[in-house]
């Protein structure tokens, strides 16, 4: 009965789909052979992706969890089950807590700076000035820069003997800073480099978003005689909040996963000041061969990222102005 309705009345079917209610779930199977065929199609269309995800995402997730409860021998094989001992030793190790702290400082600094500077660039580039497109091109330029190129550029700038900053300090009779060998400065250097590298992408997206804000809103504000700054906070920001949300998630998550710049610029040093979570996993697994412990660190990293992604999805979703 239902079969006929759905087949004859596409409108009806359309509605049902809109409600995201799969037909099968309602228990009113309209056409068994079609349902079967659709399942087959689903399998064909989803199969390749599912296979890749199962092999390279789901299986390793459980495997990592499994390994985190073991000691591994010098060939990386789990040999002794130790329960939560890896977790306990990590969370009571000052070095690991130090890494956690450093990672949070890094992530917060990078995210805040990237978002603020990205917005500043986008807002400045939205002005109508002659030759503005030239500036827009420059602002988006760092998007084409990969980690290793960025690291080389900045290593040169921070170099203690030939670097720009050192010479500049010399010129101004300021004490030279050992950028990459003093904990606080090393972190600063890495943050600056990361933010610089992020800016191109962030700018481009913010700029696109600001451009798509209807100009009528600004015109109205202009007539009211509202200041530019007020316009920015009360028109631009709310209007681009979905984009802001998207960019903040991406930036946050990407910063948690930072590895390349650390590897090239500081190798986690000095005094573990820039030994971020992913670098520590690499060190413990692929330098020291301590795969059990590194798996535990991986689980903690995954939990942190999952937590932040989830929170951002859930909380910001409600506030975003669509």
């Amino acid at each position: 009965m239902d079969t006929q309705i759905t087949n004859k009345n596409p409108q009806m079917r359309y509605k049902q789909r809109k409600e995201e209610k799969p037909l099968m779930a309602t228990g009113l199977s309209y056409n068994k052979s079609k349902a079967l065929r659709d399942r087959l199609y689903a399998l064909i269309f989803l199969g390749p992706s599912l296979l890749v995800l199962i092999v390279f995402v789901f299986f390793p997730m459980f495997r990592t969890l499994y390994l985190s409860f073991f000691l591994t021998n010098n060939l990386g094989k789990p040999t002794v089950f130790i329960g939560f001992a890896n977790y306990i030793s990590l969370l009571s190790s000052s070095a690991y807590l130090h890494s956690l702290q450093a990672t949070f400082i890094y992530v917060i600094a990078v995210s805040c700076l990237t978002l603020t500077l990205g917005l500043l660039l986008a807002q400045t580039a939205s002005q109508k000035v002659r030759g503005i497109s030239f500036f827009r091109t420059i602002f988006s330029g760092t998007m084409g820069v990969s980690v290793s190129v960025a690291a080389i550029f900045w290593l040169f700038i921070f170099n203690p003997s030939v670097g720009m900053l050192d010479q500049l300090a010399n010129l101004l009779h300021l004490p030279a800073i050992n950028w990459l060998t003093q904990p606080g400065w090393a972190m600063t250097a890495v943050v600056i480099s990361t933010v610089w590298m992020n800016l191109g992408f962030t700018f481009l997206i913010f700029f696109g978003a600001i451009q798509s804000v209807p100009s009528t809103l600004y015109e109205a504000a202009q007539i009211e005689g509202v200041s530019k700054i007020y316009q920015f906070f009360h028109i631009t920001l709310p209007m681009i909040s979905p984009t802001l949300f998207f960019v903040s998630i991406i930036t946050l998550i990407e910063s948690f996963k930072s590895f390349g710049l650390i590897d090239l610029m500081t190798a986690g040093g000095p005094d573990n000041a820039t030994n971020l979570l992913v670098y520590r996993i690499y060190q413990d697994a692929f330098l020291s061969g301590n795969y059990g412990l590194a798996s535990t660190e991986s689980v903690i990293l995954a939990l942190i990222i999952a937590f932040f992604t989830f929170i951002q999805f859930k909380v910001l979703e409600k506030r975003v102005n669509y």
């Binding site: 003997s161 030939v162 060998t181 986690g268 040093g269």
Partner: peptide
């Protein structure tokens, strides 16, 4: 103090060779 890691010996040698 030239620090640690792969950049350290390079910078150290550069410093020595340039008389610093």
């Amino acid at each position: 103090n030239y620090g640690s890691g792969s950049n350290a010996p390079t910078n150290e040698m550069a410093g020595f060779l340039s008389g610093k």
